Lab assay of single mutants.
Amino acid sequence: SLEEAIRRAEEALRKGQTFEYAGIRVTTQEALEKFRKWAEKQK
């Protein structure tokens, strides 16, 4: 689910890792916010 993907992205960010979902790379807090906004639109 998208909620699960967001949780995994947050977890990866805390560990300093890269999270990738549907071709979207989350490597920074800013990218995480963009990913969250994108995920909201997918619902």
Rank of each mutant, 00 (worst) to 15 (best):
L13K: 01
G23Q: 04
A39N: 02
E33V: 08
Q17P: 03
G23I: 01
R25L: 15
I6G: 01
E10D: 06
L2T: 04
E33R: 06
E3P: 07
R7D: 05
L2E: 01
S1L: 12
T28V: 03
Q17F: 12
K15R: 13
V26D: 00
A9E: 00
W38V: 03
K15F: 09
V26F: 12
L13C: 04
I6T: 04
R25I: 15
T28F: 03
E10H: 05
A9S: 02
L13I: 15
E33F: 04
K34Y: 15
A5W: 11
T27A: 14
K34V: 12
F35Y: 02
Q42F: 10
E3N: 10
Q42K: 10
T27G: 12
E10F: 06
T27V: 08
K15N: 15
E40Q: 08
E3Y: 07
R8K: 11
Q29N: 08
R25A: 12
A39G: 04
G23W: 06
K43E: 11
G16M: 04
E40T: 06
R14M: 11
Q17C: 12
R36D: 01
R14H: 09
L2Q: 02
A31T: 12
G16P: 00
T27W: 05
W38F: 05
L2F: 10
E3G: 09
Q29F: 12
W38A: 03
Q42N: 08
Y21T: 03
A12S: 09
V26R: 00
G23N: 07
R25K: 14
E40S: 07
T28S: 13
R14E: 12
E30A: 12
L32A: 01
E20F: 05
A12L: 07
L32M: 07
K43T: 12
I24V: 06
F19M: 01
S1D: 14
T28I: 03
E11T: 06
E4R: 11
K15P: 01
E33S: 06
I6A: 03
E30M: 07
K41I: 12
V26G: 00
I24P: 00
E20S: 04
E4S: 11
K37G: 07
Q29H: 12
R25T: 15
Q42C: 14
T27S: 14
F35C: 05
V26I: 15
F19N: 03
A12T: 06
E40N: 08
T18A: 14
E11R: 06
K41T: 14
R8P: 00
K15M: 14
A9T: 01
Q17I: 13
K15L: 15
A22F: 10
K37C: 09
E40Y: 06
F19Q: 00
A31F: 05
E20R: 02
G16L: 03
E20N: 05
K15H: 11
I6N: 01
K37H: 11
I24E: 03
R8L: 13
Q29D: 08
K34T: 10
F35N: 00
Y21D: 03
Q42H: 13
A12E: 03
K34S: 11
A39H: 03
L32W: 04
E11M: 04
E30N: 07
K37W: 09
K34G: 09
S1R: 13
K37L: 11
S1I: 12
E11A: 09
A9H: 01
A22H: 15
T18Q: 09
Q29P: 12
E11I: 09
G16F: 04
T28G: 06
R7I: 11
A12I: 05
G23A: 03
I6E: 02
T28Q: 02
Q42R: 09
Q29T: 11
L13E: 00
L13P: 00
T28L: 05
E4A: 12
L13N: 01
R8V: 07
I6S: 03
A31Q: 15
E10W: 05
A22Y: 08
Q29G: 07
F19W: 04
A12N: 05
A22G: 11
E30I: 07
E30F: 05
E4Q: 10
E11P: 00
S1T: 12
L32V: 02
I24M: 10
L32H: 00
T28D: 14
R7M: 12
R36Q: 10
I24W: 15
R14Q: 12
A31P: 00
I24S: 02
K43F: 15
V26Y: 08
T18G: 10
F19P: 02
R7T: 09
A31E: 15
F35D: 01
E33Y: 04
T28R: 01
T28C: 09
K15A: 13
A9D: 00
A5Q: 09
K43Q: 14
E33K: 07
R25S: 13
E40P: 01
R25P: 07
K15W: 08
E40W: 05
Q42Y: 10
E3H: 10
I6R: 01
A12Y: 08
R8H: 11
T18C: 14
F35A: 01
Y21N: 02
Q42T: 09
G23R: 02
R25F: 14
A39K: 02
Y21V: 06
R36E: 07
Q42P: 04
T28W: 04
R14S: 14
E3K: 10
R25H: 13
G16R: 03
L32Q: 00
E40R: 05
R7K: 13
T27F: 04
R25M: 15
K43V: 14
V26S: 01
A9N: 01
E3W: 08
A9F: 05
F35L: 11
A22N: 14
R14F: 07
A31R: 03
Q17E: 15
I24D: 01
K43H: 12
K15D: 10
K34L: 14
F19H: 02
R7Y: 09
G16T: 02
F19K: 01
K43W: 12
Q42S: 08
Q17T: 11
E20I: 10
L2H: 05
L13M: 07
G23S: 06
K34P: 00
Q17L: 14
T18N: 13
A12W: 04
A22L: 13
Q17S: 10
R8S: 10
Q29K: 12
E3S: 12
Q29Y: 13
T18E: 15
S1F: 13
F19S: 01
R36W: 05
A39Q: 03
R36T: 07
T18M: 12
G16Q: 04
F19D: 02
A5P: 03
S1K: 11
T18L: 11
K41A: 15
G16D: 06
K41M: 14
K15S: 12
A39W: 08
E40V: 05
L32I: 04
E10N: 05
E3C: 11
E4M: 10
R36I: 15
Y21A: 02
L32R: 00
F35S: 00
R14K: 13
S1Y: 14
E10G: 06
A39I: 13
Q17K: 11
A12R: 04
R7A: 12
K37R: 13
E11W: 01
R25Q: 14
I24Q: 07
K37A: 13
L13F: 09
Q42A: 10
T18P: 14
E30K: 08
A9G: 05
L32T: 00
G23F: 03
R7G: 08
Q29R: 09
E11C: 09
I6H: 01
I24Y: 08
K34F: 13
E33W: 03
Q29V: 13
Q29A: 13
E30Q: 09
L32D: 00
E30S: 09
T27N: 14
A5S: 06
F19V: 02
V26Q: 00
F19Y: 08
T28Y: 02
S1H: 14
G16I: 02
Q17Y: 10
T28A: 04
R7F: 09
T18I: 15
T27E: 15
Q17V: 11
R8T: 08
K34Q: 14
Q29M: 14
K15E: 11
L2S: 02
S1A: 13
F35P: 00
A39Y: 08
K41L: 14
G16S: 04
E10M: 08
E3V: 10
R36M: 13
G16E: 04
R25D: 07
L32N: 00
T27P: 05
V26A: 02
T27R: 08
I24T: 04
E40I: 06
I6F: 07
E10P: 01
E11N: 07
A12H: 06
S1P: 12
K15Y: 08
K41W: 13
I24G: 03
E3F: 06
R8I: 07
T18S: 13
E11L: 04
E30G: 07
I6P: 01
R36H: 05
T18H: 13
E30D: 11
G23M: 02
A31G: 14
A31I: 06
A22I: 06
E11G: 05
V26P: 00
F35H: 01
W38H: 03
R8D: 11
W38I: 04
A39D: 01
R14V: 09
E10L: 05
Y21G: 03
G23Y: 03
G16A: 03
G23V: 01
E20D: 07
T27K: 08
E40K: 07
